[in-house]
Design a binder for these strands. Structure first.
Length: 568
RNA sequence: GCGACCGUAGUCUAGUGGUUAGGACUGAGGCUUCCCAAGCCUUAAGCCCGGGUUCAAAUCCCGGCGGUCGCACCA
């Protein structure tokens, strides 16, 4: 079985279709067909239930286009942008800023034109074959666009949904009435102009994400529900690369996972993934090496699943520290700090700078006021040899001691300000959907295909068939179909072809149960219910069908007799 | 982005310059007291796109798009 088998089934049965196929398709873009969309919605629903209802998070829905400043602050503009030159001889590509290393004090800061100039000045040629290099071109992984008519404002399609939550932090904090910790989720599209998208839906240019952002006090990363799950087991691959199974509690106590909150969401992620049908024996959590961790992250764990293409990341759970909020606070000049009250106010003696306006005024004239403000906010320990340097509008001013004095004052401090930390579980929805499909895919020696999907995510929950489409069997089957639909259960009524063909059709789209009305049904009111995974059938009164199906669906049971729940 | 290989109904496939592009499965309609893709009848559906060579192109050439793999890039 390879990725092609799955994609062929996905296409044939309406799960996933290449986008714009009639125009030849576009690499890295796929559409969800009716069955894929149903599954996607179920997976999102199951995720929302865990975060919104289970953990009390709130959900927002922010824009997918953002102005340049947002991505300057988020780091994506720098991190996702490279200046590229290509050798005209051997066709290899190189990072222009890497080639001028040592020829300029700060290659990172150069524009494309400046990089071009440095390359020419230094006569740089291809490091491999000494060939002539092309002009410097820009490659940005973000899709660029223009906001408004004319040249307008530069905008980008978001490369992740998270920034929409970070920039709304002040609104969110107000909404939750100023208490930490609190969590926010968002489900939506992200866009990355991948150089070579491959492997079906694993690397897409337009993709679906489900992201949660937990805002938390850096001094208290405990989690209230931690004790409830402390004894649950996790399969972890820490930085040393040695896989081990430990309890959630041990993972934190032994310092394998940095803190309770992070460990809790690793566990919650496991529960979610197994619940939607990821095979637990092909799921592990791997810690990022310090070299692969984003520059801001304190600790990061990936949920990885084993697919035909190898172990693949489908969820990342990162402790991002205060990086995001600090950066947005700096760039937007908005206060994003949180005030933590001390249990008891602290009284202490501190040194302060007091300005002497009699000297300061005449010396700095019109700038005196802004310099005074900077002085008073300054740190007395920065005074060196009676001189302190303050920066106003980017200009340094040396201020002599005759313009200020350092005084000791008694101060009552009721609390302190800090930037909350963020713990981010980020789920690649497309990869999760694909994993559910691949892990459910079964093909026997005769080529018979069944998708053993978890009932909770199956696009069709029940197939309803009359053995023959006549003699009143059809009417009775229609009634059963209606009674299930009235409960909000997705069904498929089918009276075409042979009964075996109809079962096969349902097996291929992962329908867990089929109900068949036969001639006995007309006599005694019973029908057969057939279980996908065992192919067993039992007769039950037709009036029991809706309640039995609802119960199995709610409990995650595959068959009525089997107490094994795939959610446990 | 570069290189190699590849592209015929939904799927698999026959067709190496010359009839109306053939078959199987699937799909749709019908028959059959039909419980695991049975059988019978009917039927729909295809040469990736564009240009060139030629009297004639699915077939040869060029370009594009897409796919697989490798390299590079990225996370």
């Amino acid at each position: 079985m390879d990725i092609g088998d799955i994609l062929a089934l996905c296409k044939r049965r309406g799960f996933i279709w290449p986008s714009y196929e009639i125009y030849g398709g576009v690499a890295g873009m796929y559409d969800y067909g009716p069955n894929g969309t149903a599954m996607k919605n179920d997976i999102i629903g199951s995720w929302r239930r865990l975060y919104l209802i289970g953990e009390g998070f709130v959900e927002i829905d922010s824009n997918t286009i953002g102005p340049e400043a947002v991505f300057k602050a988020s780091g994506h503009l720098d991190e996702f942008s490279d200046a590229i030159v290509t050798c005209q001889g051997c066709e290899q590509s190189f990072r222009a800023d890497h080639l001028v290393d040592g020829m300029h004090p700060n290659p990172d800061s150069l524009s494309l034109d400046e990089l071009q100039a440095v390359l020419i000045e230094n006569g740089v040629v291809c490091p491999d074959c000494n060939g002539k290099l092309s002009d410097v071109g820009e490659f940005n992984l973000m899709f660029k666009t223009v906001i408004g008519p004319g040249s307008g404002r530069v905008g980008y399609l978001r490369p992740e949904t998270a920034q929409g939550i970070f920039v709304n932090y002040p609104n969110l904090l107000w909404f939750v009435r100023g208490r930490l910790p609190f969590g926010t989720i968002q489900v939506g599209k992200g866009y990355r102009n991948e150089i070579s998208p491959r492997q079906g839906v694993i690397r897409l240019r337009e993709f679906n994400m489900m992201e949660a952002e937990l805002f938390i006090d850096p001094k208290d990363k405990t989690w209230p529900r931690f004790d409830d799950i402390a004894d649950q087991k996790l399969s972890l691959v820490p930085q040393d690369g040695i896989e081990r199974t430990v309890t959630v509690k041990e993972a934190v106590e032994e310092g394998i996972i940095a803190n309770q909150a992070l460990a809790y969401f690793v566990w919650l992620t496991r529960r979610f993934l197994v619940g939607v049908g990821v095979d637990p024996s092909r799921l592990r959590f791997r810690q990022h090496l310090s070299t692969e961790m984003a520059h801001y992250a304190c600790d990061c764990w990936d949920a990885e699943v084993e697919l035909a293409i190898g172990w693949t990341e489908i969820v990342g759970i990162a402790d991002r520290g205060c990086w995001d909020l600090s950066s947005h606070a700096d760039h937007s000049k908005t206060d994003m700090s949180f005030f933590r009250k001390f249990d008891e106010p602290v009284e202490m003696e501190v040194d302060r700078i007091r300005v002497n306006f009699k000297s300061l005024g005449p010396r700095f004239k019109g700038q005196a006021k802004s310099i005074a403000t900077a002085l008073e906010a300054g740190d007395p320990s920065d005074v060196i040899d009676g001189i302190i340097t303050v920066t106003v509008d980017g200009v340094d001013h040396k201020v002599n001691s005759d313009c200020f004095e350092v005084i000791r004052v008694r101060d009552k401090v009721t609390g302190e300000r800090f930037i909350p930390h963020i713990i981010e579980p980020s789920y690649g929805l497309d990869r999760i959907i694909y994993t559910c499909l691949e892990h459910a895919y079964c093909k026997d020696g005769e080529g018979y295909i069944a998708l053993k999907l978890a009932p909770s995510v199956a696009p069709i929950k029940v197939g309803v068939f009359p053995l023959m489409g006549k003699d009143g069997l059809d009417d009775m089957a229609q009634d059963i179909d209606r009674s299930l639909r009235d409960l909000g259960i997705r069904t498929s009524y089918d009276d075409s072809g042979s009964i075996g063909r109809r079962y096969a059709r349902m097996d291929e789209v992962g329908t867990p149960w089929c109900v068949t009305v036969d001639y006995d049904s007309l006599q005694d009111g019973t029908v057969t219910i057939r279980y996908r995974d065992t192919k067993e059938q039992t007769r039950i009164p037709s009036s029991d069908v809706p309640s039995r199906v609802s119960t199995m669906l709610r409990e995650g049971l595959l068959t009525w007799a089997d107490p094994l729940s795939i959610n446990k």
